[in-house]
Amino acid sequence: MNVLDVDGLKKFFHTRVGAFGGKPVTVRAVDGVSFHIETGEAFGLVGESGCGKSTVGRAVLHLIPPDAGRVALHGQDLMQLDPAELRALRPSMQMIFQDPYSSLNPKQKVGAALAEPIRVHGRGSGPEAERIVADLLQEVGLPAEAANRYPHEFSGGQRQRIAIARALTLDPDLIIADEAVSALDVSIQAQILKLLSEIMQRRGLSFLFISHDLGVVRVFCKRLAVMYLGRIVESGPVGPVFDTPLHPYTQILRAASPIPDPSARTELVRLSGEIPSASNPPPGCHFHPRCPFATDLCRTVTPKTTEPVTGRHVACHLHDPAQADAMRATKPLAAKELYFP
């Protein structure tokens, strides 16, 4: 069974723009996102800032209540639960944050921070909690003395280890890692990635791994979904999606991601255009203003998700057999040449 099923998840934010109240604006942060995570699998969620990937993570955890859709943990729909039932389920899903400096309470010793959830959920008290904390510290590669120190005495990498230990205190089934290694230096990032994959193997954990870094996702995840302005545009196994991306956005994202190899140096993508705001997304396919293959159809009709290759899904008219004639009929207006190695 899948550890997590997400179906048609939606989260809109309502704000006002301008002075003295201003005019109401709806930001469609997550606009109908569906995916599933198999048990023991690391699933990547990739996209640029403002695409809604972090909102998906928080809505799955119900840290912010979703507006519509279904989020099911082990087949149990979280949207149907009352607050008490939800609180009882919380230990099964935990989160690791990007910034190891703000994710730990500065006034709380590491030992106390790790023991607190164990005591609150009645998983152990006194010496037993202390033993669990000592084991956790060892598991994340920190000395036992760390329990008696405050977070500010540790480096960024060590703090991230503490945050990982805290996420493990309640023995979860699913961990949502939101840019968990993005703030770290390369050599520390590699250490933390290694630690996370060891823990995943040992405990049979599943991960929702949110990142903007395609390299990190390729190393850590088995499958992934690419998001653009609140929607998933492509999903599938990591290798094929990165090696032969189907959606034009994935192609551009992949081409723009730097590769540490000067012999593979190519003409830098001189792709023009900005990422539009999610409060005012373009009609039709959200990506059409930046897409070199955009046609009139793309400007008006939202593309359906199809499965052109088994296990790979893409939301683009180019890959929808039902739209093949319509796409041929409407020539791209600005046929820019897209470079892709």
Partner: peptide, 9 residues
């Protein structure tokens, strides 16, 4: 140490 997007891990 750099995770690469262009080859399998």
């Amino acid at each position: 140490s750099i995770p690469r997007p262009d080859r399998d891990a």
